[in-house]
Design a protein around this nucleic acid. Structure first.
Length: 471
RNA sequence: CGGGGUGUGGCGCAGUUGGCUAGCGCGCGUCGUUUGGGACGAUGAGGUCGAAGGUUCGAGUCCUUUCACCCCGACCA
């Protein structure tokens, strides 16, 4: 994103004229935030680090959610709901877990007009309260596997929140399962990661590197953490979704045991997996350009906008409405009596995939101008043919966006045979695939001295480590 | 918690060594002219200057306290 465009987006943010905008190129890494605000998706909430997701932004989340929910159900996992408040004692049952989350939990100390005898924590994630229930629900191997999912908001009091990426409160889906064998649990955790990969690639048009997290980056309390790591336009990684093989540690901490066929009592093997509104941040940073949002057509709340041009003309308005009626996708008719440029910019900013322009001149020629959001390409289309072009164009755009993301990831992931080489590559906005050994000491110093982290050990690349800077 | 910064109409800002009716741009309302890439003119509404206290004839401006927010770092999806 160029400086001038950055100013341009700020202008949309504040509604101010260009000459009054402070130049903020120093804040360059935050360009996406301004895309977000400019696109009217969200704004900062009233309490520290919280976020208000506006209707248009929420519509995008609902589209993602609906695709994901469908896949979760297809995997045989039903939805249910657990309390938002967790007794403090429950959180303390698993040592690593509490150690990982303690600094960022919000605690309720007073309720009902008095101080509580046992404090309640606002869930940062729900393993503890769910596994407490699991311990009551599971008796025998016949009760396994037990699988549930919940859509919920969780709270993590991060010190430095950032829009969509790290907000104090965020929306997500968290799945929790208990299995009778370690292998079954691990296989399931991997399957859920594949499910997320499917959503990332086929729905959100985001190419990812799938792999396993290093011990250092692992979820607090997990045996293994699997992750998806897409590359943003600035070359930084974003943890998109994770799936954890929890081993039997939580089972032991929460007494989630079952009677096996041979009569023995054994702990269950568990998984948990989640994907959050953070993915919207990833979506924005993957596709958006200098004009604002670019949305994969599958997720666009409005697929088509028909804008009238050439003044307040009743015939044009009627024609626009007529065309809209022939289109099966969600379509907006913008026949406001304002300057065309203003309309164009507004819809581009929101990432509406296809814009159809119609004016008196078009009407005379029985045609319209069709403009594609991602490429900016303009096509002249005969009015009667508009409807049949929409669906193929949307599908093609979806493909283009994925291909672009795929290309960016593969072209900017480079093999490195030494730490120096990797550091240089990452400085140059690349992902580094390290063929050298990344010891725990090296991992620590890379992070400390260069802000570089081990993103994962990719499944596809044996004996290599993916290194990058991350959001 | 360490370092830096900011609080003045909806948004972005100006306000001099204290000086009297607190300004500007954008946005918003109304009317008119416009409309093929962010139009123009006229007119109007909207602020006890983050809060509390103090100094002074007089405080947006000086002093004290306090609150909130932003940026960099540690932490993190």
């Amino acid at each position: 994103m160029k400086k001038s465009e950055f100013e341009y987006l700020l202008r949309n943010t504040s509604g101010n004229s260009k000459k009054d905008i402070a130049t903020r190129e120093d804040d360059f890494p935050q360009w996406y935030q301004d895309v977000i605000v400019a696109a009217d998706l969200a704004e900062n909430g009233p309490s520290k680090g919280s976020m208000i997701i506006k209707p248009y932004g929420y519509a995008i989340w609902e589209a993602i959610k609906s695709e994901l929910d469908e896949r979760i159900r297809a995997a045989g996992v039903p939805n249910m709901y657990f309390p938002m408040f967790i007794p403090e004692s429950l959180l303390h049952k698993e040592a690593n877990h509490i150690e990982g989350f303690a600094p960022e939990v919000a605690v309720v100390t007073h309720a009902g007009g008095k101080e509580l005898e046992e404090k309640l924590i606002v869930r940062p994630t729900s393993e503890t309260i769910i596994y407490d229930s699991f311990s009551h629900w599971i008796q025998s191997y016949r009760d396994l596997p037990l699988m549930i999912n919940q859509w919920a908001n969780v709270v993590r009091w991060e010190l430095r929140p950032r829009m969509f990426l790290r907000t104090t409160e965020f929306l997500w889906q968290e799945g929790h399962t208990a299995h009778s064998t370690e292998l079954e649990a691990d296989t399931f955790a991997r399957a859920m990661l594949t499910m997320y990969q499917n959503v990332a690639e086929n729905v959100m048009a985001i190419a990812v590197t799938a792999g396993e997290k290093s011990e250092r980056e692992r979820f607090a309390g997990a045996a293994k953490t699997y992750t998806l790591e897409p590359m943003m336009q600035d070359g930084k990684a974003l943890q998109f979704a994770t799936s954890h093989n929890l081993g039997d540690t939580f089972a032991k901490a929460f007494d989630v045991n079952f009677s096996a066929e041979d009569g023995s009592t054994q702990p269950v093997w568990q998984t948990s997996w989640g994907m959050s509104t953070r993915s919207i941040g990833g979506l924005i940073m993957s596709h958006s350009d200098d004009k604002g949002l670019v949305l994969p057509p599958l997720l666009a709340p409005l697929k088509v906008v028909i804008t009238t041009v050439g003044g307040d003309n009743a015939e044009v308005k009627t024609a626009a409405q007529k065309i809209a009626n022939t289109i099966a996708e969600t379509v907006l008719v913008d026949d406001r009596d304002i300057s065309p440029g203003e309309k164009f910019f507004a819809h581009e900013k929101r990432g509406i995939p296809i814009r159809i322009e119609i004016g008196p001149r078009d009407l005379e020629n029985n045609q319209v101008v069709m403009v594609l959001r991602d490429t900016g390409e303009k096509k002249t289309v005969v009015i009667n043919d508009v409807a049949k072009f929409i669906s193929p164009e949307l599908a093609a755009m979806q493909q283009r966006l994925y291909a672009q993301s795929q290309t960016r990831l593969s072209e900017n992931t480079v093999d490195c045979s030494s730490p120096e080489e990797a550091i240089a590559a990452i400085k140059n906005s690349k992902f580094a695939l390290a063929s050298f050994e990344v010891t725990a000491e090296l991992e620590t110093s890379l992070k400390k001295d260069h802000g570089i982290t081990v993103r994962c050990y990719p499944f596809e690349k044996d004996a290599k480590t993916l290194l990058a800077k991350a959001y």
